[in-house]
């Protein structure tokens, strides 16, 4: 039997499959449907320092081979997560990845401080958020803005830190390198692509915020290219995601250089799709006589 176990920044995952932030809550709902303890890890819904109600109006639109979402980081806030859900997630025996967003550097830092005092495995820093103090400019678009957040958070954060990149970055390779230089332990990519749909009858955008984030199979080839570029440009490990819905997709990401593969939109196609993918990867490795999944990482 091949080994599916993977190291990521010193954290051991029993297999490379992780449920992506925002698509699985804190795991409770899926735990009622399938054995989520079989997963390699779970990335929490994106938390912010204080609770957020998220965006009003329509939040989801289906496209060809994808979906656009505009949830707007609805979440109960870091404190409520710590009180209500953290112990439960830690008890699952999967790698506990806590995803944190913020709308100012101060918010991020305060969130990181609260999380410093609790047990978790990896802090995944979502920098695809508008900086309200910089006129709404997204932290994840400009390399220098991203560098500044990562530097300040690194100085505070006691946990392993994986920075989650936006595919809307002006130069994703430069931005990933900046994160590495500022001391990130890993990189997660990609978040959703800024996209749009128009309501013809109403002659207006479908979403209240005009633009929304595209995910799912539609983005896979571009996400794969970005993972390939980043994984070949930094020495820190990469968690790849974007449209993975089959074991073949997952192997592609691994061959492109990802240590870990996250599944987001795929969970909506079939709630236990990640277990099928784990089984598929294992069967593939066995059939190919590959001893460990790490052997094929980055071979392309």
């Amino acid at each position: 039997m091949s080994s599916l176990s993977v190291e990521f920044a010193g954290v051991t995952f029993k297999n490379p499959l992780v449920l992506a932030s925002g698509t699985c809550g804190f795991g409770r709902e899926y735990a009622e449907i399938f054995d989520i303890k079989r997963l390699g890890g779970l990335a929490s819904k994106g938390l912010t320092l204080n609770a957020r109600a998220g965006n009003e109006g329509l939040r989801i639109w289906e496209t060809n081979s994808g979906i656009m979402n505009s949830v707007g980081l609805e979440n109960p806030g870091v404190r409520a997560f710590i009180e209500r859900d953290l112990d439960w997630v830690n008890g699952l025996g999967v790698v506990n990845i806590v995803n944190l967003g913020g709308h100012s550097i101060e918010d991020y830092i305060e969130g990181v401080r609260l999380l410093n005092s609790v047990k978790l495995d990896i802090l995944e820093l979502n920098i695809s958020c508008p900086n309200v103090k910089a006129g709404g400019m997204n932290f994840g678009v400009k390399t220098e803005l991203a560098r500044e957040v990562v530097r300040k958070i690194r100085a505070t954060c006691k946990h392993k830190l994986s920075v989650k990149l936006s595919p809307n970055a002006e130069d994703i390779v430069a931005l990933a390198r900046a994160c590495e230089e500022e001391g990130a332990d890993g990189i997660s990519l990609v978040n959703t692509f800024l996209a749009m749909a128009i309501d013809l009858e109403g002659r207006k955008p479908v979403f209240g915020n005009t633009y929304a984030g595209l995910s799912g199979p539609a983005i896979k080839p571009i996400a794969l290219r970005m993972v390939h570029q980043v994984a070949h440009s930094v020495k820190i490990p990469v968690m790849g995601m974007g449209g993975v819905v089959s074991w073949r997709d997952a192997i592609e990401f691994i061959m492109a250089g990802a240590s870990i593969v996250q599944i987001g939109t795929g969970n909506f196609i079939k709630p236990d799709i990640s277990l099928d993918i784990i089984d598929g990867i294992e069967a593939y490795l066995d059939a190919e006589g590959i001893g460990s999944v790490s052997e094929i990482r980055g071979i392309v």
């Binding site: 925002g22 698509t23 699985c24 809550g25 709902e29 899926y30 009622e32 449907i33 819904k45 109600a53 998220g54 009003e56 329509l58 939040r59 989801i60 639109w61 979906i67 979402n69 949830v71 609805e74 969970n267 909506f268 709630p271």
Partner: peptide, 16 residues
């Protein structure tokens, strides 16, 4: 409301 996961995990069908 339009839905994605159907089980309460993704928050796209939130209603005020």
């Amino acid at each position: 409301n339009r839905m994605a996961c159907g089980v309460g995990a993704c928050l796209v069908c939130s209603c005020k």
